[in-house]
Amino acid sequence: MLTLFTKTIRKSLISLVIYTIISVAFVWMYVALFPSIFKEREKLKEAFEAYPEGLLQAFAIEIDTFVGSLEGFMAGEYFSFLWPIILIIMVITFASAAIAGEIDKGTIELLLAQPISRLKIFLAKYFSGLSIITAFVFLSNFSVVPFATLHNVDYRIQNYLAVSIIGFLFAFAIFSICMMISSFSSTRGRPAAITGGMLIIMYGLNLFSSFQESLSSLKYASFFHYYDFNSAVVHNQIDILNIALFLVVGIVTTIIGAIIFIKRDIATI
């Protein structure tokens, strides 16, 4: 199992480096921008006050904190959209390739012909993916520290830990769902398309719920509601319900995925 785990990690290392470099570059850009934002905060506050309230709500922007602290600025610029998008793309890519990708390419037969149980194959793929996600989440988020030091910006490290935890759990749930779909798929595109489609719908539900009062309950059907980056990075708070939901979804779909992979027929073309 360890051999397969390290093989998968090695195979994903270049992608991890690329995704991390992209995220770190954005972090650097936003941290470097922040001193000028902070300097012009009064003018920016006035400008923001002219925006519709629903729009600010939709992107979880709190005007005072957005212009008044690096954490607020990062919440509005980075953790609200850019970082989760990079995270989601990476998670879906890894999970789709893990099982369905091997079947699609036909290489799964080489693994299945070895004296390793299917459960071990699944777990090796699963934990290597989780390790890659963990490395990405912490490397990208904690890159704030050296850049903030470099640009003389105040930061609260514990808040980045909080947003990393909720971000990791958000990724864990998506990864587990995509692994489950990957377990019953035979083409790499299928889990990517289903998970991607599901997340687009969830994003839409979360967005609409903040614009229309009558649709506000729709947010509960969206992972983006439970990915409360604002509370984490601005206030250093994580709602226990959010943690529980992501954990339950992640664990249940992982178990279902493992059972499907153990029981299914695996025939390459």
């Binding site: 390419k105 036909g106 290489t107 037969e109 080489l110 012909a113 390459t268 073309i269």
Partner: peptide, 8 residues
């Protein structure tokens, strides 16, 4: 296997 599919 009939296809000999390996890691490219």
């Amino acid at each position: 296997s009939s296809e000999s599919t390996l890691y490219s």
